[in-house]
Nucleic acid binder design. Structure first.
Lengths: 130, 130, 130, 130
DNA sequence: GTGGTCTAGACCACC
DNA sequence: GTGGTCTAGACCACG
């Protein structure tokens, strides 16, 4: 699981991490029942305070995405894939609506927006294929 | 000038307002020399605390986008259009990169992303033409 | 609102505080719409870290007991009284079941249990009437 | 010996087990000199990690309730009944005080508390006589 | 080793 | 002044 965290973003680090995990569950990269990284391990990996990761897991537990077994670790909850797919779809839709809204607000025409999207797709694709 | 503010967004309300004003200047909707709404008037209009609007004008003044003439009001600064166009372009690019990144992260293929963008363009266009 | 917190108890301090607030709402001592003590104020009052109080309010918000308005304070949510009454009833029932269970497990007969309860009622009543 | 363990309770599992054993000694159900279940046997019986049971026996040994004879097993210590009776009485008193305190805090009057106790006694009695 | 809770103190955004 | 987030580091209970 590759979680990119931007500490300068206005969206809280914990929410970025949570979103990354929801996406991973939604895409099937993390299957239900599978064990997630430990609080301390993930914190060390992404250079974040363990408390922050603990908060993420606590939030995701309340959301039903994750099941934590004290002493054993944190696991993807059964039946959470659908919920994560829904959540992820909403997040993507919301982000895209905002981005396109800004673009037309900035005076870009439909063709320009589509060309911009193509550029971004290329970047993202390049990143994926690297 | 149409400023949509979402108080639940993680991006600060003051930043949302500032961005809206920069966009309006960038698009020419607010021309240099033009008078902007008063602190209290704008605050009442978009249902925000006057202190927040005051902070926005203060920030934009330091940025050179706006010039406040005590007793007269706040005006779009001469020569600020280019700066705002640049800033807006960056904001749009950043938002689009984030949105497309999320979309491919959620497993959408290029064609699906483009279709999603088309939907969003339609929505935004409809909103614009209403 | 009188919140007695026992830091030596195995039940987490934050849960003790939350329970005290639920009780206060259930009993009508804190009416819906009413403002609760501020995070820092309550923390100072009951000699607890502000983060702990913040956690309590965050949990109660998710539970629907409380509505927090950033910059303004924390308020009792509309329609939370019934939920709190239910929760409080459950807590009392659970505690009493456990206590009576322990008592009979320790070999006390029904009459002895009732006498013990009478003593405790007297203590609690004395505390209330002081 | 009937040890009900609730893993979700905030009181530590090891303490729940220790308390159960103290109660059994206090009531005479386990007489001094009598052999207690083995660490692994008890662990299997109540579905708990053997380390936890081992910790319980270690704690009770330091407390003088139990005497472990390497290779032979764990035995109820001579002269421990009185100490356990005292400890159990304290635990019961504390639990009852807490329960009654919560009940009056929740707004129950003395008569309602007594009626609640009667209900609990009935439940507990039924459980005992089954 | 695991997670859970708490303390302490910093910074930010908003009223 | 308000709450929100994050860091840092302590202690506890459990596997």
């Amino acid at each position: 699981m590759k979680l990119g965290v931007d500490p300068t973003s206005p969206v809280p680090v914990s929410e970025q991490i949570a979103e990354g995990i929801r996406f991973a569950v939604a895409s099937g990269e993390c299957a239900p029942g599978e064990r997630l990284p430990s609080v301390r391990g993930l914190a060390r990996e992404i250079l974040v305070n363990p408390n922050t990761v603990a908060k993420v897991y606590r939030d995701l537990e309340r959301e039903g995405v994750v099941r934590t077994r004290p002493g054993l670790g944190v696991f993807v909850a059964e039946g959470s894939a659908a919920r994560c797919r829904r959540a992820s779809r909403d997040v993507v839709l919301r982000a895209m609506r905002a981005a396109v809204g800004k673009a037309v607000g900035a005076g870009l025409g439909p063709a320009e927006v589509e060309s911009l999207v193509a550029d971004c797709l290329f970047e993202a694709g390049a990143a994926v294929h690297e």
